[in-house]
Design a binder for these strands. Structure first.
Length: 502
DNA sequence: ATGTAC
């Protein structure tokens, strides 16, 4: 048997791209890493494996805890982690969702080709930079009145479209149609709402960005056609989340868990995994508040989409919808927990079980935590919008600003292998601190422009250094693993034209 | 990720 060991954690190769940390001690289930040998080396280089192992201690975890091929260490639970926990007997963990609730990415297609934008990159990047608020702190597209914040939290994209910031088809082209049915705005604190108030329609900082891209490769022509993608076509990618509002909400509930459920916390190997027991008031309140933050993040990306459409309309002197065909291709969340029903192994008494103890499979309602992982439902799944149901859910996976991105479709194996999930990006190779020691923002910017005709404009040079292409794993390798496992199939590849950052 | 710290 092929094995690998990192800092005393041993992994056994189950099959190609699947590595298992066997169950031992207090682990409820084994853990699995979905990675090629080279990606596993990168994942084993930080604390991800220990964090993944720790997460198997969470009560009610069913089936192995998973790390996607782009995984790296995060707060308590790895970024790139998927944890499926029984929604009746288990728990829900804010750290396994992430501080940036519904950080996610959407792609807007256009009728433009690369020839239409070549030579006008600087004009375009300047106009977008002007139109889309970015960077730390406040300033949004709309005035965040109490009614606006409330509408966004309660109704998501539906609110934004009714307020004039989108078109009807935007709703269907968004995960959950841009609205979590179980959102409970009353469980979002006043402090969180105050932080979100003047951030409605703002990119933020860190790895968040807005990028104009050209399609360089089409791998599955029929699926690309269903998605409205063609080689040489121009698309726009928007990557951001719920800003201060989601961050505050995560923080609020972590503190409340510490105060109200210290007993559960004491049994966990890492305080950062703090979880509210399923069925508790706190679990219900966090789940409802998180749903509202999810809606807020969707509104955020929707308002930015509106600004992008207006800007393209101005720059190309055309109607963004009728002439430029700027329809939303799809919007995916990659920091989220949702109640979903999946098949899990059960023992003779019908209790969730793994390995030899599992004698049958049965459906269970689970809190599926996807932290830095993207839902990737296959063709035929009823949660895939009707227009895409025959080909599978679009999965948008951004790479670094020097490498480009991928559009995948949910693969036929995703439900059985990864609770209908795949990777969410290239995944960091080093910390932000280390990145700033290795790179200088201005140099990175010059190299991208001179070497690859990629025009980057950012609020802060430090952010460019933190997000330098060399800070990330190889996106092609991440996607290869997803494709070969059959959890997310390659549809098209894009390459950056211009990029704005916080 | 984040009014980059309780």
């Amino acid at each position: 048997m092929t094995t690998r060991e990192f800092d005393g954690i041993r992994l056994e190769k189950v099959r190609e791209h699947v590595w298992e940390i066997p169950r031992e001690g207090e682990m409820n289930v084994p853990a699995r890493v979905l990675a090629s040998e080279s990606l596993l080396e990168a994942i084993g280089d930080d604390d991800s494996l220990q964090q993944l192992k720790n997460a198997t201690h969470l009560p009610g975890m069913v089936e192995p805890a998973l790390c996607m091929p782009d995984g790296h260490q995060g707060y308590g639970f790895p970024v790139g982690g998927v944890g499926a926990i029984d929604a009746r007997t288990g728990c829900i963990s804010p750290g396994a969702v992430g501080y940036d609730i519904n950080c996610g990415v959407r792609m807007v297609r256009t009728n433009l080709t690369y020839d239409d934008v070549r030579g006008r990159e600087e004009e375009l990047v300047d106009a977008l930079f002007e139109a889309v608020p970015s960077g730390l702190g406040g300033g949004g597209v709309v005035k965040g009145t109490a009614d606006a914040v409330e509408g966004a939290l309660e109704r998501g994209v539906e609110w934004a479209v009714e307020a004039g910031y989108g078109i009807e088809s935007d709703l269907a082209h968004c995960e959950d149609e841009g609205r979590r049915p179980d959102a409970r705005p009353e469980y979002v604190s006043q402090k969180a709402m105050d932080r979100g108030r003047n951030q409605m329609g703002s990119l933020g900082s860190g790895n968040h960005f807005l990028e104009v891209q050209r399609v360089t490769d089409v791998f599955r022509g029929d699926v690309a056609e269903a998605y409205g993608l063609e080689e040489d076509g121009i698309v726009v990618l928007i990557h951001c989340g719920s800003r201060g509002l989601g961050h505050q909400t995560c923080n609020d509930y972590l503190r409340r868990i510490e105060q109200e459920h210290g007993d559960l916390l004491a049994d966990l190997p890492d305080k950062e995994l703090a979880a509210a027991p399923a069925g508790s008031e706190l679990a219900e309140e966090y789940y409802g508040a998180m749903g509202a933050c999810i809606n807020f993040a969707w509104v955020n990306r929707q308002l930015i989409t509106h600004q992008v459409r207006e800007t393209f309309g101005d720059v190309f002197d055309a109607d963004p919808i009728d002439d430029l065909g700027m329809e939303l291709l799809y919007d995916v969340a990659h920091n989220i927990a949702k109640k979903e029903t999946h098949e899990v192994g059960v023992d003779a008494e019908g209790r969730p079980a793994v390995g030899d103890a599992a004698v049958d499979r049965d459906e269970r309602e689970l809190y599926v935590h996807r932290k830095g992982a993207t839902r990737a439902f296959p063709a035929g799944n009823e949660d895939v919008p009707e227009t895409y149901r025959e080909v599978g859910q679009p999965v948008i996976i951004p790479g670094s600003m020097g490498a480009g991105s991928y559009v995948l479709r949910g693969g036929d194996e995703s439900m059985g292998v990864s609770f209908g999930s795949t990777a969410h990006g290239a995944g960091r190779l080093m910390s932000r601190t280390q990145a700033k020691q290795e790179f200088w923002g201005g140099d990175v910017q010059d190299d991208l422009k001179d070497g690859q005709q990629i025009y980057v404009k950012a609020q802060s040079g430090a952010t460019i250094a933190e997000e330098a292409p060399g800070v990330y794993k190889d996106i092609d390798e991440v996607i290869r693993v997803s494709d070969e496992l059959g959890i997310g199939d390659k549809v098209a590849r894009t390459f950056p034209v211009c990029n704005i950052k916080g």
